[in-house]
Nucleic acid binder design. Structure first.
Lengths: 163, 163
DNA sequence: ATTTTATGTATAACATGTTATATAACTTCC
DNA sequence: GGAAGTTATATAACATGTTATACATAAAAT
């Protein structure tokens, strides 16, 4: 057994640590999505959710809303266009801006997700870390241990069997 | 001003959120490293620290120690070889394994880092989130707000001026 | 009105993570 | 002791983030 340096070093490796936990959480989330038979990536959801909440948004606004850079937003929106979940057209008052809106297919996906998938994911994550408290390093350790002990997808099953 | 969906959605977007905070923290950490004039990437440090702590390790052990996959470890070790910070040779008893050890240059870097850089980074991160407590979502919000208000690099300066 | 500057998006190049798979070396089992 | 399976690392292909920069359009300035 090898020592987990990132965990051992604590605050020194916070960045690496948060990133790797985030990646694992997102991979687990993806599993829940896949098991539900939806063809979308976990990282694409926030874009759809943003438009659903605020109405059509420009690329720049989406980047801000999701907290990534503009080129990243441009790429993800390109994927969602390919998938047919969103539509894009120049803003009438400013030809530079592209307004991105949900297609019917995209709205259907969001509506279905809100009913079926999002609550499941949120509940599983809450099960993982909702009751935690105390210093962040301790909570992160608990989250990592929790994920190793039982992935998110199983937490749904468990939750549904013993609610 | 656009709503931050990832923050708004809470547990639903935990994965994205942790990742993006991790990325920002690591970018800030990199700035501290760069300002100190060291030519190393923040993400490479845990590998050097792991070897420094445990002695020569194989690629697989390093991957475990740092918490990434083996191909990722192979690549980073390739970079550290290029930079001259580590050395790699087949394990005497098992020709498949590659033992990675610190070169003198690598050990010098680690020793210097332990004295000068690592404490500074750890102190800045502790300043950012060391005193936090309570539910994780609240702490994450505080960390994001804190980073937006003052990057890690500035926290050093502030700390050194008003210790 | 035309030139200059600023802004929004797209694209290129790169960084660093992943999964899947090839290859070499070690183990196991008849 | 050789065939078959296992394990360690390398490599390929891909995902998704970044920074730097090009290009089109809008806004400002002379």
């Amino acid at each position: 057994m090898v020592e987990d340096v990132v965990r051992t070093l604590g605050f020194l490796c916070m960045g690496s640590r948060l990133r790797r936990i985030g990646e694992r959480l997102q991979a687990d989330t993806q599993q829940v999505i896949d098991e539900a038979g939806l063809s979308i990536q976990a990282g694409q959801y926030p874009f759809l959710a943003a438009i659903d909440r605020s109405g059509p948004l420009t690329i720049g606004e989406l980047a801000q809303a999701v907290g990534i850079t503009q080129p990243g937003a441009t790429r993800t929106i390109g994927q969602l266009l390919e998938l047919g979940y969103v539509d894009m057209q120049p803003a009438p008052d400013d030809q530079r801006r592209r307004l991105v809106s949900l297609t019917d297919k995209g709205q259907d996906l969001v509506d279905h997700s809100k009913k079926v998938i999002w609550p499941r994911i949120a509940a599983a994550v809450a099960d993982l870390c909702g009751d935690l408290d105390g210093p962040i390093l301790e909570q992160l350790a608990a989250i990592e241990d929790g994920l190793a002990a039982m992935p998110l997808a199983s937490r749904n099953a468990a939750k549904e069997e013993n609610p």
